[in-house]
């Protein structure tokens, strides 16, 4: 191998390395560009209308619907998570875990269709309640899987300690493990709420959307996500601009949930 040939090759290789680095930097920029662009437009086009009363209805609708969904999803998701953790290793768990991943990952519009067929048809009306059921349908498996992961990650040692002290399995789980789990559980719930809040497709056929104040759980309701969707489809440019305000409020809520989640995990690491 001749030395000068080698030196020349090195120069070429380093130049290639530099170009590759520039290319990757550009890829990184492309990844983040949509985020900045979306945030820029949402804030700059959305803030004018921020305090108009028009957004109170969909905001209340969103919060109400997500909270009701959580009333179903938290106990059922926790139960599912405990099941997955307690029975891990069995064949049944593999099936349940697979179903859970599938249900939380399938196109959410299909969940809307199924809830339409089951809840809307049988109750005879589109409703805020039906929307909550749709949101809960993917929140339950999502929460269950999150809780299973958190249990595996943080508590098997604690539980073994409790069992060694002579506690029954149930006691060990409920008295020793669950208190430690409170924070990760809350974080998982917050993430699941933020996802539920932004979903639109499962609400189209269940909640329908409504320009009036929700009369009750069993009537159609307006949510931020539906309002953004329908306003965006409107030919009226004033209505279109309202979509941006809705998006700003929605993103503000999601950021709020994230900040709370960060704050909780920050406290924990101290």
């Amino acid at each position: 191998m001749r030395e000068e040939q080698f030196i020349r090759a090195i120069k070429r290789r380093k130049r290639k390395d530099q170009w590759y680095f520039v290319f990757l930097l550009f890829m990184g920029f492309l990844s983040l560009f949509p985020l900045f662009s979306v945030l820029y437009y949402v804030v700059s086009k959305g803030w004018f209308d921020l305090f108009s009363a028009g957004f109170l209805k969909p905001t209340v609708g969103t919060l109400e619907m997500v909270l009701i969904a959580m009333v179903f999803a938290i106990p059922l998701g926790t139960g599912l998570g405990l099941y997955l953790y307690e029975s891990r290793g069995t064949r049944m768990v593999t099936v349940v875990r697979y179903t859970a991943d599938l249900l939380s990952g399938i196109p959410s519009i299909l969940i809307g269709m199924a809830v339409y067929a089951v809840v809307v048809i049988s109750t005879g009306t589109f409703s805020l309640f039906a929307g909550s059921v749709a949101l809960a349908t993917f929140s339950i498996p999502y929460l269950g899987r999150e809780i299973e992961d958190q249990l595996i990650a943080s508590t098997s040692a604690i539980k073994e300690g409790a069992l060694a002290l002579g506690a029954t399995n149930t006691r060990a789980l409920l008295q020793m493990v669950m208190p430690v789990m409170t924070r990760p559980l809350i974080v998982a719930i917050l993430f699941s709420m933020s996802r539920a809040m932004g979903e639109t497709a499962p609400l189209l056929f269940t909640t329908l959307g409504n320009h009036f104040w929700p009369i009750g759980l069993m009537s159609p309701a307006s949510t931020l996500s539906l309002q953004i969707y329908f306003d965006a489809l409107s030919p009226n440019s004033f209505v279109q601009s309202q979509a941006w305000t809705g998006a700003l409020i929605l993103i503000a809520f999601i950021i709020l949930l994230f900040l709370v989640a960060k704050w909780i995990t920050r406290e924990e690491s101290k």
Binding site: L35, V38, Y41, E199, S225, A232, F258
Partner: peptide, 23 residues
């Protein structure tokens, strides 16, 4: 970058749709 990418994942699809349609 990790925080920003988490934020990218958290933006609801309807907001991407809105941005897509008007930007």
């Amino acid at each position: 970058a990790t925080i920003l990418l988490d934020a990218l994942a958290a933006i609801p699809s309807v907001v991407y749709g809105l941005w897509g349609l008007f930007v």
